[in-house]
C-alpha cells in the first residue's frame, strides 16, 4: 500500500518534506518512524489524515502521515 509521509521542521533535515512510500499492509505509524530512523522521543506530534494518532495506529492505503518534532524553546 502507499502512504504519503510528510515531515516537518528539523525532521526534514537530511530526509525530505513529503514522499509517497510503499509499506506492507497493516503497517503502523511506528513502522514509518523506524523506516526513517526517527526515534519516538523525537516525534512530538503525529497526525494521520490530519487527526491525532498514536504510534500503534494501523495505516491504510492512501493515508497521509504527518510527523512533527517537539519544539520547546522560548
Amino acid at each position: 500500500m502507499q502512504v504519503n509521509v510528510k515531515l516537518f521542521a528539523s525532521l526534514r533535515e537530511g530526509r525530505f518534506k513529503t514522499e509517497v512510500v510503499d509499506f506492507d499492509s497493516n503497517s503502523r505509524v511506528i513502522d514509518v518512524m523506524n523506516k526513517y530512523e526517527l526515534p519516538p522521543e523525537e516525534v512530538a506530534i503525529c497526525l494521520v489524515n490530519g487527526r491525532d494518532a498514536d504510534n500503534e495506529h494501523v495505516l491504510q492505503n492512501g493515508d497521509t502521515v504527518s510527523l512533527f518534532p517537539p519544539v520547546g524553546g522560548g
Partner: peptide
Amino acid sequence: LFRHGEKGVEKTLGNPAFTP
C-alpha cells in the same frame, strides 16, 4: 500537542534571533 517528551529539539538547534 506537547504530551510526548520533555526534550525539545532547541537543545540541539539553538535559538537564533529571528525565530523568537
